[in-house]
Write a protein that binds this DNA or RNA. Structure first.
Lengths: 202, 202
DNA sequence: AAATTTAACTAACACTTGTTAGTTTACGTT
DNA sequence: AACGTAAACTAACAAGTGTTAGTTAAATTT
């Protein structure tokens, strides 16, 4: 675990074959519609036009599909935030970058984001690793807010409430983005920054 | 359906017996932890110290539990918003009332709110009714925002983005409220109003 | 005291679940 | 032409699923 190999990082050392990736993509769509527990291996197979047993030529078991979806996304967020932490700008600017990070990752993988948000509790082997990543992420995020308060860039309200409010919105993007066709992600990100940072009150 | 009877409204004419309510409450807790599909009738029974078959002395089937949880909450929101729409105040004041509405209902029923958010797609008989309630709610909410923009109380940004941002935060309250012990709901509501309406930027 | 109701039980059902074993088919390489 | 491999198949499994039928014991009503 956590071996760097090629352009793969952390806990996902093996790059999946194209067929395996098709299974994961198909499963993601179904997981988003009904949730992990309500989707059967036969559902996934049927959506691909094959039989359930055939899936096992490509994957170890059902859990592996969920694990891949969730961990690869979680690691994208961790890595993205790492860059932002190290960037040399104001805290408000860092928050804008975080918003862009969420809009970017989510718009590229709306289905997977549903599992990340709703099905993480069904992880087994990697549950603790996932929880660690999530806590680390939230802590880094909160740290940026706190520093912004200290420097006078950000209002002196309870940082937890600000964190919760922003993160809730960003975590819900996966529901909202697919509803809007012809979506310009950079416009969305800047509109969100406006609303989340400066509020709606005139 | 939709018969007013005593203090029961809309699509839930029958008030459940105390034992039935215990089942629903127990189920809510489990549904929050693992989601509706991953919770079995045997899980619910075990949590109550009885056998699965005994549940059927009190409820029609598994679906009825989920339906009760979701529809009764959805109707609380619809009724609460109805009062707010009819109140004679500014749009900003109406938004504050909506925030209070969410904090109130959610803090009284955090478990049920998990199902409302994540398990509605497993409704059968009442799925269309639920979807209608949700669309009505969002439309009324959006209308208040649009009127606020017209009257110059609210910034002239895309109302959908403001709606999405506020509603995402309010819908995530069920995750956040149980994590904070000794929570004063009126303090939370006013802090949320501050953040959601006026932003975090100084 | 007898009759009814409530709410638990045991046992079983038909069906679905994830998964394995063994087989077949098609295709690229030797 | 023979071989090896990838990826599909059929058949089956053990365990778990929601639910029903019939029974029992206690509490309540008549």
């Amino acid at each position: 675990m956590k071996i760097k190999k090629g352009n793969e990082y952390l806990a996902l050392p093996m790059k999946p074959t194209p067929r395996k990736l098709e299974i994961i993509t198909t499963a993601s769509t179904l997981f988003k519609e009904k949730g992990y527990s309500a989707v059967t291996m036969r559902d996934i197979a049927k959506a691909m036009g094959i039989k359930a047993a055939s899936l096992y030529n490509h994957i170890k078991n059902k859990e592996e599909i969920l694990t891949f979806i969730i961990i690869s996304l979680a690691e994208q967020f961790i890595e993205g935030l790492e860059d932002i932490k190290n960037s040399n700008t104001t805290c408000i600017e860092k928050l804008k970058k975080i918003i862009e990070l969420h809009v970017g990752i989510t718009s590229r993988n709306t289905n997977g984001m549903a599992s990340l948000n709703n099905d993480w509790m069904h992880l087994k082997d990697q549950l603790n690793y996932y929880l660690k990543l999530r806590i680390d992420y939230e802590n880094s995020f909160r740290k940026i807010i706190k520093e912004g308060v200290k420097k006078g860039e950000i209002k002196n309200i309870n940082p937890d409430i600000m964190l919760f409010s922003i993160l809730s919105t960003l975590r819900s993007l996966y529901i909202w983005i697919p509803q809007k066709e012809d979506l310009d992600t950079s416009v969305l990100a800047s509109n969100l920054s406006e609303v989340l940072l400066k509020g709606i009150n005139k």
